[in-house]
Amino acid sequence: MKSIQELEQIKQRTLQEVNLRKDRKGTRVVVGMATCGIAAGARPVLLAFVEEVQKRNLQDITVTQTGCVGVCRLEPIVEVYKPGEEKVTYVKLTPEKAKRIVAEHIVNGQVVTEYTIGAAEK
């Protein structure tokens, strides 16, 4: 059972880690969350990114939302911004695909080409 006391422990533990990662620039994962995105399943995709990043204890990753990206038929759409690299747009995501993107792209630096907007629009 989750308790407020446990939150106190999370605070102590995490603040120590946060201090270590203040100066570095991180990766941003941006999920399209307008009506189209939400209806297509953006929320479970966003939460899959959150869970996977937390499970692997990855630092310097922010997961956030944006509005409608403009290609509603390809939702859920996620943009991954890695520092010093070009933005990668992934389309028609599922929680399973999200986990693969964390492992292959965010951790290992290999873009999952088959899920990108370039591959979908061929």
Binding site: M1, I10, K11, R13, T14, L15, L47, V50, Q54
Partner: peptide, 26 residues
């Protein structure tokens, strides 16, 4: 209320978000 308990730790920290999700669900 939660922010009051967190001090310098951001509420958007993924460990906090994970806790919030479970706390509300339970």
């Amino acid at each position: 209320d939660i922010k009051g308990k967190l001090g310098d730790l951001l509420i958007s920290d993924l460990s906090v978000i994970g806790w919030i999700r479970k706390y509300i669900s339970e």
